[in-house]
Amino acid sequence: MQNSHSGVNQLGGVFVNGRPLPDSTRQKIVELAHSGARPCDISRILQVSNGCVSKILGRYYETGSIRPRAIGGSKPRVATPEVVSKIAQYKRECPSIFAWEIRDRLLSEGVCTNDNIPSVSSINRVLRNLASEKQQMGADGMYDKLRMLNGQTGSWGTRPGWYPGTSVPGQPTQDGCQQQEGGGENTNSISSNGEDSDEAQMRLQLKRKLQRNRTSFTQEQIEALEKEFERTHYPDVFARERLAAKIDLPEARIQVWFSNRRAKWRREEKLRNQRRQASNTPSHIPISSSFSTSVYQPIPQPTTPVSSFTSGSMLGRTDTALTNTYSALPPMPSFTMANNLPMQPPVPSQTSSYSCMLPTSPSVNGRSYDTYTPPHMQTHMNSQPMGTSGTTSTGLISPGVSVPVQVPGSEPDMSQYWPRLQ
């Protein structure tokens, strides 16, 4: 039975679970980093996980050691009161100082060594604690504590007292930064006198190289990059290397530039699409467009005044059976039934097929058609009795279509119309 579990990581490298990497692998990681390889490249070359490479390099940059820390136990506290007071002093002298600059000053002034120097995250935590204590304490208590930490007896009751030896409130920041720059020169002199001055200088240079600022491109470089971006948004590694040799930039910087440029292009394309949609959409909808001609068919113009009344309900007709019959029939052209047409008796099958359309009241044959006459024609229609054979009435077949029909004066039988409509 094995005491430890061995495995293979996602890159194909072998590791022992819970145990640190061998010293030979750690040394190779540092050597590759000094030669300029990126952590992701080191991870692929040595088949070590990216997190492990970053952790080893980060500890090497901070402490200069590649040895693993002790497994188990607690780390001794490195942010001692003396170190905290120095950090507060540096922050007062130059409020814009960075944590890694404070760390360098602690090393250069001999406050800490490589073994007990606090990390950048520890210094940031100390600065946050100082800021929170400043908010919790009152103004007087804060000034007393700062005077105690600074070891001075001057008056701290006013704002300019934060910067000793100065009279203009805006000047101390520059003086403090100048003092810090002077301390940086002392850093070089002190570290050069040490035993491991060369190694420390190499480590600091490598650290500065990794902690780079934003790349500033010249106009020629920007023009070359934009020209390549117009050709393709995704250049391959050969195109990037050719462009890197042409404009004297690292291939990694060119790759990052193209990634950022593609993101910018997507944002601009989104804005262009929004403007295009806004320009195509009308600002207001016309009133006429809300009524579609496919839904509402136009009603033909009436030929006679009587045809303006298109349904039985508008003429005072309360018989719903006839109203439904007229509205359900398709529109037909106007025609006239003459008196000489043969009077065919209704076929029983045809009569039964339209039995649902006729009223059940037996008085329908005896009703006159003056009910369908509009009010303004009552006088004219009353002067001509319906009993004469020459009287013409208008029957409504569908809305908007008038059918003048000659009705025999002897017997106005409704059943004569249905064979004609089939």
Rank of each mutant, 00 (worst) to 15 (best):
S49C: 01
N3Q: 12
G12F: 04
D41Y: 06
W100M: 06
S24M: 09
P20S: 03
E82W: 14
E133P: 10
R92Y: 15
S74Y: 02
S96G: 09
P39M: 08
P76R: 07
P118D: 02
I97K: 15
S85A: 12
S49K: 01
P118Q: 00
Q10C: 07
L32W: 05
A79W: 00
R128S: 05
D144I: 09
R67C: 04
Y143H: 13
L106A: 00
V83S: 05
G138P: 10
V111F: 06
R147I: 14
A99H: 01
R125F: 06
V83T: 09
F98H: 09
L21D: 00
I71Y: 08
Y143R: 14
E109D: 09
E62L: 09
T113A: 13
V53M: 00
A139N: 14
H5Y: 09
G13Q: 03
T80I: 06
G7Y: 08
A70D: 06
C94N: 14
N17P: 15
K28Q: 10
G138T: 14
R59K: 06
R103T: 05
V8W: 05
A131K: 15
S121M: 00
K145S: 14
D23I: 13
R26T: 01
N9G: 03
K28N: 08
Q27G: 11
F98E: 02
R67K: 15
R147G: 11
S49R: 01
V120F: 04
K91L: 01
L130G: 10
R69I: 03
G51P: 00
M137V: 10
H34Y: 12
V53K: 01
P81S: 08
S54P: 00
R38A: 05
Q27N: 08
V78I: 06
Y60Q: 00
I29W: 01
G73R: 06
P20A: 05
D144L: 10
A139F: 10
Q135I: 11
P76K: 08
I56M: 04
V111G: 09
G36L: 01
M148Y: 14
Q135C: 09
C40Y: 03
R59N: 05
V111D: 10
I66T: 07
E101Q: 15
L21A: 04
I102N: 00
R69E: 06
R59Q: 05
G12T: 03
T63A: 03
R147A: 09
G18A: 03
R92Q: 14
Q136G: 12
P39A: 11
P39V: 15
S119W: 06
V78Q: 01
H5Q: 11
N3C: 08
S24G: 10
G141Y: 10
S49Q: 03
A79F: 02
C52R: 00
C94T: 13
P20T: 01
S96D: 14
R69M: 11
I71G: 10
S35N: 13
R38Q: 04
A37C: 14
C94K: 09
I97L: 10
G36Q: 05
R38Y: 03
R67F: 07
C112S: 11
S6M: 15
V126A: 11
I123M: 03
G73Q: 01
S35R: 14
G64S: 03
L57A: 02
S35A: 14
T113K: 12
R19D: 03
S65F: 06
H34N: 14
C94L: 13
I87D: 00
T80S: 05
A131C: 12
I71A: 14
D140W: 09
L127T: 07
L11F: 09
P39F: 04
D140V: 14
A99R: 06
S24W: 08
Y61C: 08
R128E: 08
R44F: 05
S121C: 00
C40F: 02
E101N: 09
K86P: 03
M137K: 13
A70R: 14
V83I: 08
I71C: 15
S96T: 14
A79C: 15
S24R: 12
G72Q: 05
K75E: 02
S24H: 14
S96A: 15
P81M: 07
E101R: 12
S6G: 10
T80P: 05
Q2V: 14
R26Y: 01
P76V: 07
A99D: 02
V83Q: 01
G12R: 03
P118K: 00
A70W: 05
I123E: 05
R69Q: 06
R38H: 02
R77V: 02
I117E: 07
